[in-house]
Each structure stands twice: as structure tokens, then as C-alpha cells.
């Protein structure tokens, strides 16, 4: 009876009679909710088959997700060209994996390539040209479109956000004013209106005959808003840095850009990284809003699949599948950020 495990259990769940009652009520509620849920999700669900007729039980009809799987991933991307998406995806995973290995030789070089050459290569693979068949962006969709939106909007938003944060703390009043106006404007309006704005105004303000791609409009709209939020996250890091760092660098005779690049930003970005990751997660979630300009990302394609007369009533299956992907991706990002923060805390004692 004196095992430490039981002791802990008792302390945490049955410390007082009230506590015990709460625990029992919670257990009952969890049991009542999770049993039917598990039955629907797993035990009574139909997993194998090729058509709706296979689904006879009361549970979920995962056949639907199975049949539609490639559409959820690629959208309407032409089937013979899908290997290009696979290669782009493999490149993404490989780069991320290699960069997370801290002892990698030439890690710096790869990091620079991953934000310059690789995105261009990815664009070439997905869109085509130079020997590859061109696949119009209106055929892109599914998880692939979600990732494209997140990555390319992020690639614009992070550097722009850093510049805006520096601008907001600049000595020059006009630069400071312009940065504040830019940041507060985009932060003050809903993202959905910005996506609307980008899709309606960009064709209007460009010279006639110069067409901005619909997907590019959405990416730009998202990037501007996220850059404004990113700027505030970076500003937090800049403010946390002691003034002495800049003063010492000035005393050494370094110029403005060199101080920012060598002294201030490396430290400030490290502090700002958790906040920046949060903005990145927000960006990932907000890519769903492109549904409003008829781009079909993962959520959009799941929603569109419900209109198929052959699969009426599959709402729950489609939502559970899409929701699970979003959840795992966001949860993984936030856990990564949390662990990194802990490691840095241990290393720098902050």
C-alpha cells in the first residue's frame, strides 16, 4: 500500500473527499463521452472498401477518406504530374530534417539555400516551365496548397516583419511613423477582408495586361498581415535586449546594419522565437480563409467533397480527418517551440 506510485495517485486525485467526488464525476463523464466516440471512430467504423455500399455499420465510414485521400492531399493537381509534388514534399522534409541536426557540416550554407534557392526550385517543380508541363494554380489544392500558402507567405512575412520591427524602433521619425502605420493598419483589420482586398484590388492597381495570379494574391494578403504580427513578436525580442549591447557595438565603431545583423538580431530573434512560432501557427491556421476566394486548401477540399452526391452525409468523416491533420501540425509546432525554449533556458539561464 505504501508504493510511491499509489501515494502520488492519492495526492493528486483523492486528497480530500471533495477531490475524490470530483475525480469520480470526471471519470464518469470521460467514460460516457469517450466510449461512444471510440465506437464511432474505431470499433464500429468501416475501414475497407471502395464505395459507399461498404459502409453498413453505425460507425464512421473511413472508406470515404480512403477513396478521396489523394484529392485531400493534391486537390485537382493532374495525376500524371503528382510526382513533382512528392519531390517538393520530400525536399521540404529532407531540408527540415537535416537542419534540425545541429552537427551538420555546412549547416549555415544549407540554411541560406533553404530560404533562397529551394523555394524557387519548389515553385518551378509545382508550377512548371523550363521543360516541365505548366500546372495552373487553380488546379492546386488540398494539403499541398495549405503548405504552399504557409511556406511562401512565411518566407515573405518573416524578413518583412523583422524590417518593420527595426523600423518601429528606428531613430528616424519618418521611418518609425511609416512602420507604425503599416503594422497597426494590418493588425487592425480581419484577415478575411485582407484576402478580399488583395483579390479585388491587386488586379485593379496593376497596369492593365499584367495579371497577378489568384494564389499569389492570397499569399501576398496573408503575408502582409502576418508580417505585421511578426513585427510585434520581433519587437518583443528587441525590447528584451539590454541597451548596452547596441552601445558596446557602437563604441567598437560598427555601423547600423552590421550592429543589427551581428549583435542585435541574433540575440533578439532567439528571445522572440516562441512568439514568432505562435504567429507561424496562426498563419498555418489562417490559410483556411482562402476558401473565401475559392481556393481549395485542405479544409476547402474537405468541404467541397461533401457536395459529391455519391457520398452524401460524410460531413463528420471529412471534418474529423481534416481537423486531425491541422491539430497534429499545430500541436507539433507548439511542442517544438516549447522544447526549444526549455533547452535555451537551460543553456542561458533565462
Amino acid at each position: 500500500m505504501k508504493s510511491p506510485w499509489l501515494q502520488t495517485l492519492r495526492q493528486r486525485l483523492f486528497a480530500t473527499p471533495v477531490d475524490a467526488a470530483i475525480t469520480l464525476v470526471c471519470l464518469y463523464v470521460v467514460w460516457r463521452l469517450s466510449v461512444p466516440l471510440l465506437h464511432w471512430l474505431v470499433f464500429d467504423a468501416t475501414w475497407n472498401g471502395t464505395s459507399r455500399d461498404a459502409c453498413k455499420g453505425d460507425g464512421a465510414c473511413w472508406v470515404f477518406v480512403r477513396v478521396r485521400f489523394s484529392q485531400f492531399m493534391y486537390g485537382q493537381y493532374p495525376i500524371p504530374e503528382r510526382w513533382r509534388v512528392d519531390i517538393a514534399g520530400a525536399l521540404l522534409v529532407a531540408t527540415a530534417g537535416l537542419l534540425s541536426w545541429r552537427g551538420l557540416p555546412h549547416r549555415r550554407g544549407l540554411a541560406i539555400a533553404s530560404v533562397t534557392v529551394l523555394p524557387l526550385a519548389g515553385l518551378w517543380l509545382l508550377y512548371g516551365g523550363l521543360g516541365l508541363r505548366i500546372v495552373e494554380t487553380r488546379e492546386w489544392g488540398g494539403l499541398m496548397l495549405t503548405l504552399v500558402l504557409t511556406i511562401y507567405a512565411g518566407l515573405i512575412a518573416v524578413p518583412l516583419g523583422i524590417l518593420l520591427a527595426l523600423g518601429r524602433r528606428s531613430r528616424l521619425p519618418l521611418i518609425r511613423f511609416a512602420s507604425v502605420v503599416f503594422i497597426e493598419f494590418w493588425r487592425g483589420v480581419p484577415i478575411i477582408t485582407v484576402i478580399f482586398l488583395a483579390s479585388l484590388l491587386l488586379p485593379l492597381i496593376m497596369p492593365s495586361g499584367f495579371d497577378v495570379d489568384r494564389l499569389a494574391r492570397a499569399v501576398l494578403g496573408l503575408a502582409f498581415v502576418i508580417a505585421a504580427y511578426m513585427a510585434e513578436a520581433v519587437r518583443g525580442g528587441l525590447q528584451a535586449l539590454p541597451e548596452g549591447q547596441t552601445e558596446a557595438a557602437q563604441a567598437l565603431g560598427l555601423g547600423y546594419w552590421r550592429i543589427q545583423r551581428r549583435i542585435v538580431l541574433p540575440q533578439a530573434l532567439r528571445i522572440a522565437l516562441p512568439a514568432m512560432t505562435n504567429e507561424f501557427i496562426a498563419l498555418f491556421k489562417n490559410t483556411t480563409l482562402v476558401l473565401i476566394v475559392s481556393l481549395f486548401d485542405l479544409l476547402g477540399i474537405a468541404q467541397a467533397a461533401l457536395a459529391d452526391p455519391a457520398w452524401v452525409g460524410m460531413n463528420m468523416e471529412a471534418y474529423v480527418f481534416a481537423g486531425a491533420i491541422y491539430w497534429f501540425a499545430c500541436f507539433a509546432m507548439s511542442q517544438w517551440s516549447r522544447r526549444r525554449e526549455k533547452r535555451l533556458q537551460a543553456a542561458y539561464g533565462r
Binding site: R12, L13, K285, Q303, W327
Partner: peptide
């Protein structure tokens, strides 16, 4: 202090925060 109660609350928080709002609206 009750571990189960606090975990359930944590579960709720992690559940809603990691899924897009548009998903919940459509759902």
C-alpha cells in the same frame, strides 16, 4: 490541484487552440 480536472481543462485548451476557427464554424 486535482490532476484529472486540470488535465481535462488542458485537453480542452490544446484542442481548440490548435485547430483553425473556420474549421469549427463549418463543423
Amino acid at each position: 490541484r486535482n490532476w484529472l480536472l486540470s488535465s481535462l481543462a488542458g485537453f480542452y485548451i490544446e484542442f481548440v487552440r490548435n485547430i483553425p476557427l473556420l474549421f469549427f464554424i463549418l463543423f
